[in-house]
């Protein structure tokens, strides 16, 4: 069994330092890896990222993250990345990592993702340049996520995003803002590989559980949704993905 801990949208700044630490000290007894689903900082400064590094660094298990929209706000992404990687946190954006857990290879592919909406109610690459750029951005990152997932050579495959790949886990959010919360293109990318679990954040008023059309379990781990320091998902070693070879 592989035990995956995950949380997103922790929005760390100096005023939050130490809040997660007591629960994190217990994490190695409960989980083999920690996934951080974006919005690690309050508004994306290097100083805040150093607070994230202090809070989530040195846990004794691998910590794997994607950035969120908040982490981009102050245009300090290189400094944010440096602060996190200096603390041993792996940050994914269109790439992947394989972690050995007692002989089982856990593969995690990640992207921040972007919006656009969901099948039947989504934005199209049509019209003004700004609109086309918006939709093209999501298409590009979704393609990178799909390629990273398909290229993984591992036993258990997990997709990590900030934006949501399905509308199921947005239940509780106003319908009007769904196009800003995620995109079906991320779900399609997840279904293009035999993915075992997809984890995202971003939707603070959403709900925990959903599935892609291909049957991959999706979990929204935004901190205000899970209302605990992190959630833990136990995945069986011999798990067979429902989306494997589904052709979606």
């Amino acid at each position: 069994m592989i035990r995956i801990a995950a949380v997103g949208d922790v929005h760390i700044d100096r005023d939050v330092l130490g809040r997660f630490r007591p629960a994190l000290e217990e994490l190695p007894d409960r989980a083999d890896v920690l996934l951080l689903a974006g919005d690690l900082t309050r508004h994306g400064t290097e100083a805040e990222a150093k607070c994230v590094a202090t809070e989530f660094g040195g846990l004794g298990v691998p910590v794997i993250a994607v950035l969120g929209n908040h982490d981009h706000h102050c245009d300090e992404v290189p400094g944010v990345l440096a602060a996190l990687t200096d603390a041993g946190i792996t940050v994914l954006e269109g790439d992947s990592i394989v972690v050995d857990v007692d002989g089982t290879r856990l593969g995690v592919a990640g992207v921040k993702g972007f919006g656009g909406g969901f099948a039947g109610r989504c934005a199209s690459e049509f019209g003004e340049p700004e609109m086309k750029a918006f939709v093209r951005t999501t298409g590009t990152v979704a393609e990178r996520l799909g390629a990273a997932l398909r290229d993984l050579d591992c036993d258990v495959r997990v997709a990590l995003t900030h934006y949501a790949p399905v509308p199921d886990t947005l239940a509780g959010e106003p319908l009007e803002i769904y196009p800003f919360l995620g995109s079906y293109l991320l779900g399609q990318a997840i279904d293009s590989a035999p993915t075992d679990l997809a984890v995202h954040g971003h939707a603070h008023h959403g709900s925990e559980r959903g599935r892609t059309p291909g049957g991959v379990r999706v979990r929204n781990v935004a901190h205000p949704v899970i209302k605990q320091a992190y959630s833990v998902f136990n995945l069986a070693r011999e798990h067979v993905s429902p989306s494997a070879a589904s052709g979606i």
């Binding site: 035990r3 809040r19 997660f20 605990q228 833990v232 998902f233 798990h239």
Partner: peptide, 14 residues
């Protein structure tokens, strides 16, 4: 203020 305690149980995804 969102609670930040350790989880009391894990979700089994068999």
């Amino acid at each position: 203020v969102t609670r930040a305690a350790a989880p009391t149980e894990a979700e089994e995804l068999a």
